[in-house]
Measured scan of single mutants.
Amino acid sequence: GTLHLNGVTVKVPSLEKAIKAAKKFAKKYNLEVQVHGNTVHVH
């Protein structure tokens, strides 16, 4: 999967790991997580 954090793109081995990391990051910075196919966006 691919993880987008505020314009930074990170390749992640699995989508589940990407979503987990995204949710952790989003919670910390009070951001929103959106999943588009195998790409996770945090903004």
Score class of each variant (00 low, 15 high):
5 L>T: 04
27 K>Y: 04
41 H>F: 14
40 V>Y: 03
37 G>F: 05
5 L>D: 01
15 L>F: 06
1 G>N: 07
11 K>W: 15
25 F>V: 03
12 V>H: 06
25 F>L: 10
39 T>M: 10
19 I>Y: 06
35 V>T: 03
20 K>N: 09
4 H>W: 13
11 K>L: 11
23 K>A: 07
23 K>T: 08
11 K>H: 12
15 L>H: 01
23 K>R: 13
24 K>N: 07
2 T>I: 15
34 Q>W: 14
33 V>Q: 02
6 N>I: 12
33 V>T: 02
1 G>I: 15
22 A>C: 14
5 L>Q: 02
21 A>N: 04
27 K>Q: 09
6 N>R: 09
36 H>N: 10
43 H>E: 04
41 H>L: 14
2 T>R: 11
37 G>L: 06
36 H>S: 10
1 G>H: 11
40 V>A: 04
2 T>Q: 09
11 K>S: 10
34 Q>P: 01
6 N>T: 05
26 A>L: 06
24 K>A: 12
38 N>Q: 06
3 L>K: 02
26 A>M: 08
31 L>A: 04
41 H>S: 14
20 K>D: 08
38 N>C: 11
24 K>I: 10
39 T>I: 12
29 Y>N: 03
17 K>A: 13
7 G>H: 09
16 E>S: 12
23 K>F: 10
24 K>R: 13
20 K>Q: 12
19 I>A: 01
30 N>L: 07
32 E>T: 14
41 H>V: 13
14 S>Y: 07
40 V>R: 02
14 S>M: 06
2 T>L: 14
3 L>R: 03
14 S>Q: 05
43 H>T: 12
35 V>L: 05
11 K>A: 09
39 T>L: 08
41 H>E: 13
43 H>N: 07
7 G>Y: 07
8 V>T: 08
19 I>G: 00
26 A>V: 03
38 N>I: 11
41 H>Y: 15
34 Q>T: 14
4 H>Q: 08
29 Y>P: 00
29 Y>C: 07
10 V>P: 01
1 G>Y: 15
22 A>Y: 07
3 L>S: 02
29 Y>E: 00
12 V>W: 12
5 L>M: 10
5 L>W: 15
14 S>K: 04
9 T>P: 07
17 K>Q: 11
6 N>K: 08
26 A>N: 00
3 L>P: 02
23 K>E: 07
8 V>Y: 13
7 G>E: 04
28 K>R: 09
28 K>M: 08
30 N>H: 12
27 K>C: 11
17 K>L: 13
34 Q>A: 11
20 K>F: 06
43 H>F: 15
37 G>S: 05
10 V>M: 12
41 H>G: 04
30 N>C: 14
18 A>Q: 01
25 F>P: 00
3 L>G: 02
32 E>A: 09
30 N>E: 04
23 K>H: 07
4 H>K: 09
40 V>E: 01
10 V>W: 14
11 K>I: 11
13 P>W: 12
32 E>D: 08
26 A>Y: 04
7 G>D: 04
36 H>D: 11
36 H>P: 02
28 K>I: 08
11 K>G: 06
31 L>H: 03
36 H>G: 03
13 P>Y: 10
29 Y>T: 01
5 L>H: 05
20 K>C: 14
36 H>V: 14
25 F>E: 00
32 E>P: 03
39 T>E: 13
30 N>K: 09
5 L>N: 02
8 V>G: 05
33 V>W: 07
23 K>W: 10
16 E>Y: 10
11 K>C: 15
23 K>Y: 10
4 H>Y: 11
28 K>V: 05
9 T>V: 14
28 K>W: 11
39 T>V: 13
22 A>R: 01
12 V>Y: 15
28 K>Y: 07
20 K>M: 10
37 G>T: 04
32 E>L: 11
9 T>F: 13
19 I>K: 01
22 A>H: 00
26 A>H: 00
18 A>T: 05
19 I>H: 01
7 G>K: 07
19 I>L: 10
6 N>V: 09
20 K>L: 11
1 G>V: 15
4 H>S: 08
13 P>D: 12
41 H>Q: 12
7 G>T: 07
34 Q>L: 13
16 E>I: 13
37 G>K: 04
2 T>H: 12
42 V>P: 02
35 V>Q: 03
32 E>S: 12
15 L>G: 00
28 K>S: 02
42 V>S: 02
39 T>A: 09
21 A>S: 06
38 N>T: 11
43 H>V: 12
5 L>K: 03
18 A>V: 06
38 N>V: 09
5 L>E: 02
5 L>G: 03
16 E>F: 07
